[in-house]
């Protein structure tokens, strides 16, 4: 018994090396060719860590040796100091939290509205020939237009208030959600729907118990894309005479050559974007464990 245990200890993989992606387990370890083999390319954590460390080190070094003017590339230390200062005292009488919150609020409103209207319309397009006929040309025409192209028009129509910013973000999310919902509905296997009809389900029951859960994985992918696009459009939306918001903060700071604020503003936008995607992914794993297993 004890011998067996030593055996597995000696022959098993080192868990730390496996976690770092420096050692392989299972058949992958014995594969003679991995080039072009997607199942063998899972990414090496070790090299991820190296790349982040090198990037940050490069920032420190370039600032310490003043490779460029500090107005253009502030040092990590001064960026952190500025971040701490703004975090404590705010910038131009607006606290950092208020800036973050007003940006988040705009994105959530725009994204939420995009889902609220986009998903039902996408569903309708996947369920009816007439509705698909009606909406197809509209969707196909507006979808490729970059949302930013609508800024001048929205200012003209809705002024420079909160409305036009939210509407711009809504516009960014809406088409993505329509298309995701439509393809989610159309991805249902005919045999599933027919099985449900034969089991006595009504049309409404087919919609709620078959079409809807079947479309959820694709709707969720759409939500992740839409939220990303909204967040990415944010800075542009806040070009429209905003008083607060992360994008606006960056724009104003840039005018005064406060590059530190521009830097940590960008980093903050990146971090929040990653966190939002992570939350959606967790939600996805919790809500649709069957994804990709149909």
């Amino acid at each position: 018994m004890a011998e067996n245990k030593t055996d597995t200890e000696n022959t098993g993989a080192n868990p730390i090396l496996v976690m770092l992606g420096l050692a392989q387990v299972g058949t992958t370890e014995r594969k003679t060719v991995t080039f072009g083999d997607a199942s063998a390319i899972t990414g090496s954590r070790f090299w991820s860590i190296v790349s982040v460390v090198v990037l940050i080190a490069l920032w420190f070094v370039s600032a310490a040796f003043e490779w460029t003017d500090s107005t253009f590339l502030p040092s990590p230390q001064s960026t952190w100091a500025k971040f701490y200062e703004v975090f404590q005292e705010g910038y131009r009488n607006v606290s950092l939290w208020e800036n973050i919150w007003s940006s988040l609020r705009r994105v959530l409103y725009g994204f939420g509205l995009g889902c609220l209207l986009g998903i039902p319309i996408g569903f309708a397009m996947g369920l009816s020939n007439t509705l698909r006929g009606i909406f197809d040309p509209i969707v196909e025409f507006f979808r490729p237009i970059p949302p930013l192209a609508f800024i001048p028009l929205f200012i003209l129509w809705f002024g420079i208030g909160e409305q036009s910013k939210v509407l711009l973000l809504f516009f960014a999310a809406f088409w993505v959600m329509v298309i995701a919902a439509r393809s989610g509905v159309l991805s249902v296997k005919l045999s599933k729907v027919r099985a449900a009809y034969s089991l006595g389900a009504s049309k409404l029951q087919i919609l709620t118990y078959v079409i809807l859960p079947n479309a959820l994985p694709e709707v969720f992918i759409g939500m992740r894309v839409a939220l990303g696009v909204c967040w990415g459009t944010l800075v542009a939306a806040e070009l429209i005479a905003a008083q607060e918001g992360l994008g606006q903060m960056i724009w104003v700071a840039q005018k005064f050559f406060l590059t530190e604020i521009v830097f940590f503003g960008i980093i903050l936008i990146g971090v929040i974007g990653v966190i939002m995607d992570l939350l959606l992914r967790l939600l996805e794993r919790w809500l649709i464990p069957w994804r990709g297993k149909g």
Binding site: K192, R194, A195, S198, P213, L216, G294
Partner: peptide
């Protein structure tokens, strides 16, 4: 009154 059994893939995986 007429039940159906299809080839694999007609179960509701959710």
């Amino acid at each position: 009154d007429r039940g159906m059994v299809f080839q694999q893939g007609a179960l509701f995986e959710w």
